[in-house]
Design a protein around this nucleic acid. Structure first.
Length: 369
DNA sequence: TCTGGGGTCCTAGGACCC
DNA sequence: TCTGGGGTCCTAGGACCC
């Protein structure tokens, strides 16, 4: 018997959902982001493959996207539509025989599979079946990475895109990844890569061979060795389908014109706090700590945290604490962005694994003792 | 070009207690 | 006068992912 990790990832998910309900957009460059107005301060959530051919990609300001591709169709983000499509997809994945499913976001999930024999072809057969089942249920195409760890499966998916399957295991890890830059790893961004490069670790293979002592001295006793393991493709081999429990909910808004007026700022914090309270009420857990995030013009962002004397459900308490945090900053530059986050009282007994799911979260977290 | 909005986790250092 | 070592709690800040 062998254990495999599959990573299922929908192709251009958000754009695909939009094209599904507006078939006349098929084959056109489609860019989804913000309110769909490329003159506003907002960024691209997803671009269709046709738009990507013009150099448009996720995270790019809409203002830049429209320059790169003036003929693109710009659409607003419609979260509820993606929630609905995602639910259909995940239901199809969960229905696959033997699948243990850990959802990572709207458009991706890990699937644990056990096969009778050791041959990876058996895992690939599951991957192909899941792709067909997802397509049948949702009319959406996906790609699947097959691996012997979460890290390898996750990275494999990119090589399978679009509409394909790719296998990445101990057997071909270094052959495929060894000479690639460390940023090709899930969990290594440009900052970490720069610090690794300062020690002479530029490629995945160099990181894999790095000394744990050097890594620990640079990144700490937990994260250092963790990066070494990433370089070797190591990660979880077993998928945990424990439902994810939110730690916090937050709301933030980038204002089309900067805020300077005190009353305007207080009103903005009040509105954000009210939205946050709606979200934590749905969870049934009170707010224990308030986080304030502020981006001052031109582009300086900072956050502050304050624990509340007593957990609260009251938006006015949260707003008052957020305003206090802002006042304590003593910075009166114009504000581009405000965010209020409510960190919730942990459930009795603390949080169960998995810790790294929900939308976002550090990709492959180091193991905890 | 001008940088969203939703998240999670790690590290470091200070305060405080024993 | 000089001041250990362990533990916990808290905040600030950084990093990453989708």
């Amino acid at each position: 018997m062998a254990r495999w990790v599959l990573h299922v990832d929908l192709d251009q998910f958000i754009a695909a959902v939009e094209i599904l309900r507006r078939p006349e957009l098929a084959g056109l460059p489609v860019v989804v982001g913000g309110r769909g107005d490329p003159t506003e301060r907002a960024v691209v959530s997803t671009a269709s493959y046709e738009a990507r051919a013009f150099g448009v990609h996720s995270g790019m300001p809409l203002k830049l996207a429209v320059r790169k591709c003036p003929e693109a169709v710009f659409l607003p983000v419609d979260g509820p539509a993606y929630d609905e499509a995602s639910a259909v997809v995940m239901e199809a994945v969960r229905a696959h025989p033997g699948a243990v499913v850990q959802v990572l976001g709207w458009d991706e999930a890990f699937v644990g599979i056990e096969t009778p024999g050791p041959d990876v072809a058996e895992a690939v057969a599951h991957a192909e079946a899941i792709r067909a089942e997802v397509l049948e249920a949702s009319l959406l195409h996906c790609s699947v990475g097959v691996g012997d760890t979460t890290v390898r499966a996750k990275i494999a998916t990119d090589f399978g895109k679009p509409r394909g399957t790719f296998v990445l295991t101990r057997e071909n890890w270094f052959e495929v990844m060894g000479e690639r830059p460390t940023t090709a790893l899930w969990g290594v961004g440009t900052r970490i890569a720069a610090r690794l490069a300062a020690h002479g670790y530029d490629t995945v293979r160099q990181l894999a061979d790095a000394s744990d002592d050097v890594l620990a001295a640079e990144f700490g006793p937990r994260m250092g060795p963790h990066y070494g393991r990433l370089g070797r493709g190591l990660g979880a081999t077993r998928i945990d389908d424990t439902p994810w429990v939110a730690r916090a909910h937050g709301r933030e808004t980038t204002y089309q014109s900067n805020l300077t007026d005190e009353g305007e700022i207080a009103a903005a914090i009040g509105s954000l706090s009210a939205q946050v309270v709606e979200d934590i009420r749905r969870e049934g857990r009170a707010c224990a700590r308030v986080h304030l995030k502020v981006r001052f013009a031109p582009f300086f962002t900072t956050t502050r945290i304050r624990k509340l004397a007593e957990p609260t459900w009251d938006a006015a308490d949260i707003a008052a604490t957020a305003l206090e945090l802002l006042r304590d900053l003593g910075d009166d530059r114009p504000i581009r962005l405000l965010g209020v986050r409510a960190e919730m009282v942990p459930p009795v007994g603390g949080y169960e694994p998995p810790r790294t799911t929900g939308r976002g979260g550090p990709a492959a977290s180091p193991p905890r003792d």
